[in-house]
Design a binder for these strands. Structure first.
Lengths: 345, 345
DNA sequence: CTGAAAGCGCTTACAG
DNA sequence: CTGAAAGCGCTTACAG
């Protein structure tokens, strides 16, 4: 039995494979309800397996980029990278959405992971890129079920083997921040981190912690704060840190936003940066560059991460496999003006 | 002669109208070259007039947002507004692109305004939103020819009657900046503006200028600088301003980026803000909020502008007409910590 | 350069 | 719940 399958799958391809009529397959594709559940399930499975796309064939290839929170300096860098990679020939269109929006799942029905994933597939998206977004296991599974590849940038939870992700060497970044501060002579340092549950935050902290400990200057427990990655956390928790009886001489912030918030907390108290306090940020977004003083940061190559995510997504969409399910790009230390030797006591 | 046109136009509709065969229309649609130029032109015209979309009918409605420069704090706010409005039922997909990319215009051919516009139409975009982007007259014309509505946000050149645009009350914004500084007691003020050719920059400057002049404190010619809207201009030109023998006591910057650059120039020189110099920004992006000290700004409602642009674009795409070809949303003064009374001499 | 005709992929009213 | 058959929108090899 030679199943001829030259080009793209048609209704006839599926009908033959399923042993049903073309009409029945058509009904399943169009979501009519006069098909038995069993037949429907089997046909749907076959449609997926054959990458059935409808007669439109391939429309313009499109990748959907999903952000969780508000767009910010961080997302800009990632998007720039994605956009530039997408502009390279042959070119992909980039769709932007927040959460599960932008996909029509049918008249006002509540959007479930499955309906969203099916909508994404039906809209013809080649792949989905999710950015620092807690994609649930359900979302990922539904997407896989709909045959839409998913690439996660900077996953909050450690990468499962079944999800492809792109991150940065956060642990190494924490180390370089510690080494920089140690080399300047700081020994009483604090960590003002982001969400405790976030994998990237944990890695940054552990790299930082271990290096200081090895150097004989362990970080005191009361100088370790896990808050959120946002500006407000820098202002509030950073301010509280400064109000201590014995404040640190340097702070490693878990993000640029936190660092910038901390710098505002310093200004309000007349604490000078870097004379009275050294601050190291993490990310190297435009915020770091525009900060006054310009921020010393551990740079994570966000644009490059966006570019790699896009190219990986395209490769998966083309049916190729990827060498590794998780890629980590190298961080690097960028020294600007927010760090200096501690004052002589 | 009753031309029956119930639903969507088909090849037959066009063929009948053009007095040619269905086959010929099909060839035009598919860009085959065995059609005479005259026939092709006529058929293309008819395809447009009938809003021919192909059998796919309406795909998921999609709006293409085109940015010129790099994504920045400014674009974030606009995009947030567009995205939120797009997420409201019934929901539109949002495509992001920079310049004329993201559209497949055929094998490696140089992208001309016409081929781009045709590609946009063929890709099924309902409308295009262009952000602070020098859309050329050619682009706009080509888009109009392809029946794709265009809405420009914050047009660089004064809105022509034929282009729909959304802006802010820049002139009034300039006035409110001047009034704020006058009320604090400043009389020796400078304008550190963006691109001289940009309409929004001119309006800001004129509103500012006229108010100070009326108040009897005209801005000295040597304290008026038109640079670019970027950070670097704030650092360099702003720094030069501070190095004058008689520096101003307050500066109205044409954008948040310029203001933030100026604040860095101040830091480098030990000039305190607002004690030694008051700074007013323009935009109210996240940069203003995160600046240290937080920036007093003339706020332009960028998110709202994004939302209005999207809704206008959708209305145009639906064939409705708009009341006004140019809408200006109100600016407002947001007082934060970068302005204060001038020091007593 | 044009179109009649064959044929493809799909949908749907209807018979079973 | 299923499918034979009619028919629609479109494409294309080919004759003129």
């Amino acid at each position: 039995m030679t199943t001829s399958r030259p080009g793209r799958a048609t209704l006839a391809t599926i009908a033959q494979a399923a042993g049903v009529s073309i009409a029945t397959v058509s009904k399943v594709v169009n979501g009519r309800d006069d098909v038995s559940p069993g037949t429907r399930a089997m046909v749907e499975e076959l449609l997926r397996r054959h990458y059935y796309t409808g007669r439109g064939g391939t429309r313009q290839p499109t990748v959907e980029v999903v952000f969780a929170g508000p767009l910010a300096a961080y997302s800009n860098e990632v998007l720039e990278g994605v956009l530039r990679a997408a502009a390279e020939p042959p070119g992909v269109a980039v769709m932007l959405s927040k959460g599960r929006t932008g996909i029509d799942t049918g008249a006002g029905a509540p959007v479930t992971p499955t309906s969203w994933a099916l909508g994404v597939a039906k809209a013809g998206r080649s792949a989905v890129i999710s950015v620092s977004n807690e994609m649930t296991v359900e979302d990922a599974t539904a997407l896989a079920g709909a045959n839409v590849p998913l690439v996660v940038i900077d996953p909050l939870t450690p990468a499962g083997a079944d999800v492809t992700s792109v991150g940065a060497t956060n642990y190494a970044g924490g180390i370089s921040a510690a080494e920089h501060l140690l080399s300047l002579g700081h020994t009483r340092v604090a960590y003002l981190g982001g969400d405790l549950e976030a994998g990237c935050n944990q890695a940054r902290w552990q790299g930082f912690r271990s290096t200081l400990e090895t150097a004989g200057h362990p970080v005191r427990d009361d100088l370790v704060l896990h808050e959120t990655f946002r500006y407000a956390a820098g202002v509030a928790a950073g301010g509280a840190l400064l109000d201590r009886q014995h404040p640190p001489t340097a702070v490693f912030a878990g993000s640029d936003e936190i660092a910038v918030g901390l710098i505002e907390a310093c200004r309000r108290r007349g604490v000078r940066v870097p004379e009275d306090l050294s601050v190291v940020g993490f990310d190297d977004t435009q915020l770091a560059e525009f900060c006054s003083p310009p921020l010393t940061v551990v740079r994570q190559p966000l644009r490059e991460m966006g570019r790699v995510a896009l190219r990986t997504a395209l490769r998966l969409a083309a049916g190729a496999s990827v060498d590794s399910h998780h890629v980590e790009l190298a961080t690097s230390l960028v020294v600007r003006a927010s760090t200096a030797a501690p004052r002589q006591r």
